[in-house]
Design a protein around this nucleic acid. Structure first.
Length: 436
RNA sequence: GUGGGCGUAGCUCAAUUGGUCAGAGCGCCGGACUGUGGAUCCGGAGGUUGGCGGUUCAAUUCCGCUCGUCCACCCCA
């Protein structure tokens, strides 16, 4: 039986056409900000993949049953880090790259809304600068893309790993439990405060530590006030993080991203281990169950794990194409398309095949997407075909038309048709198609 | 991986407490309309009711297992 591995999808034309259009819009924004494309292989050595994301994520890497120790890439950031370690010397820094390719995750759960085992990530990263201008730029790009795609109610969540680590440390948690505590905190807005408290209590952490971290994380204030509150904490990491976020917020407004879409929150942590500085996600306030549409942050130590020669600072984000499309579908903003074809040239008879082919050729040479019905079937079949694929025009050159280089041009949406000279039909088609 | 819902024609779904219950609508194909689609009418093809096993005189209906699918949790894009 024909079937599909769970979590994998086929894309038929009605879905693929708008997918490509959305991808083109995303690419356009990347390029306008000066980013250049790269691609990397689907398969990486396991030694490249493992130990970068954290234990949880390592379990979700698809390993390939092969003696060389291989796996499918889990994201595009780690392959990028490998690329920079290998070719970085030849790339002028800062290096801005984008990359649009699928990644694979062996999700344990069955497929559900906005979650797949194979999905496309659109990554933008800027390598070789630790300036907060880079962080702000990445956020501005994320915001611009979401706006361009028609999202109105999105929110950029912004936090900082240094602040989180400082807080956890300041509250008295052991250094080695840091990541566990961070992940619990991350669930706050999903499972609620009490559930997080339970999760931490189960691990038998000190009650005063839990109480203390809750106090700090519960602060719910405007961005600037929150940063003022945090800066009062006597911890160098927290202070550094706050200073960094202030800069990012400042630069963000300079590149046109208003404070109203950004929300600084000490509760968002992100699950991947490699982040070192600012971290961010975007979510839709009217579709919270969808999870994040984009997510990223600064990872100043990751490239060094490959090159072994000191740090190369880096910052970037993933635009989740499949999440975006799922969200657009949920919001009824994902139009189904049928075909690119604008004109179907019907075939009247074998004797007139060349007439049809030649006219179609003329249309294509002026840029009009045109197809010829390949067999001289009954005209009702040919018109019905045009109708099913939503082809807006049908041209017919039959016995009555050939002699004087005429043709019948039919507008399928209105149903009106007229017999006119072939050259005139080309002109009319060109005009009407350029208008749309 | 844990908990729950569901699995009948390509799609959406019917079928009284197990007993002519294997059907409808839409779609598809053909025809009415041998130079015209989307309307209408007529006709047609398609199912071992997800699979395997059990209970029974009898199972789409009950039980067990399995596979698939959907939802929640976990995690993320």
């Amino acid at each position: 039986m024909a079937r599909l591995y769970r979590g994998m999808r086929d894309f038929l034309p009605e879905e693929m056409i708008p997918r490509e259009e959305i991808t083109a819009k995303i690419k356009e924004v990347f390029r306008r900000w000066g980013y250049v494309p790269i691609e990397t292989p689907a398969i990486e050595l396991l030694e490249t993949l493992l130990g970068k994301y954290g234990d949880e994520a390592d379990k979700l890497i698809y390993e390939i049953k092969h003696k060389d120790g291989l796996g499918l890439r889990y994201d595009l950031t780690v392959p990028l880090a490998r690329v920079i370690a290998m070719y970085g010397q030849n790339l002028p820094m800062p290096f801005r790259r984008y990359q649009i390719q699928p990644v694979w995750r062996a999700e344990r759960s069955q497929k559900q809304k906005g979650r797949f085992r194979e999905f496309i990530q659109c990554d933008v990263d800027i390598i070789g600068t630790s300036s907060p201008i880079a962080d702000a730029e990445i956020l501005a790009i994320s915001a611009e893309i979401l706006s361009n795609l028609g999202f109105e109610r999105y929110k950029i969540l912004l936090n900082h790993r240094q602040i989180l680590r400082g807080l956890v440390n300041y509250a008295g948690f052991d250094e080695k439990n840091e990541l566990f505590v961070l992940r619990s905190i991350d669930k706050w807005d999903k499972i609620g405060k009490e559930a997080v408290r339970e999760e931490l209590a189960e691990k038998s952490f000190k009650k005063e530590s839990i109480d203390r971290i809750f106090e700090l994380i519960e602060i719910d204030e405007t961005n600037w006030n929150l940063l003022v509150e945090l800066s009062k904490i006597d911890n160098q990491r927290v202070k550094n993080g706050v200073k960094n976020l202030r800069k990012i917020l400042e630069y963000l407004s300079a590149v046109g991203v208003g404070q109203d879409v950004v929300q600084v929150t000490p509760r968002m942590a992100r699950g991947l281990d490699y982040y070192t500085g600012a971290i961010f996600e975007t979510v839709l306030s009217n579709l919270p169950s969808m999870g994040s549409l984009t997510g990223g942050g600064r990872y100043d130590d990751l490239i060094g794990m490959f090159s072994g020669k000191g740090k190369i600072p880096a910052c970037g984000t993933t635009i989740g194409l499949d999440r975006i499309i799922s969200a657009l579908q949920e919001l009824d903003k994902f139009p189904k398309a049928h075909t690119f074809t604008k004109v179907l040239v019907a075939q009247f008879s074998k004797a007139l095949s060349n007439e049809a082919l030649n006219f179609a050729h003329k249309l294509r040479s002026v840029g009009i997407p045109t197809e010829v019905f390949p067999e001289p079937k009954k005209l009702s079949k040919q018109f019905s075909y045009a109708n099913k694929w939503n082809i807006p025009y049908v041209v017919l050159i039959g016995e009555d038309e050939v002699e004087e280089e005429l043709c019948t041009l039919k507008d399928m949406s209105s149903g009106q048709q007229r017999v006119i000279h072939q050259d005139r039909a080309i002109k009319i088609l060109l005009e009407s198609i350029n208008k749309k």
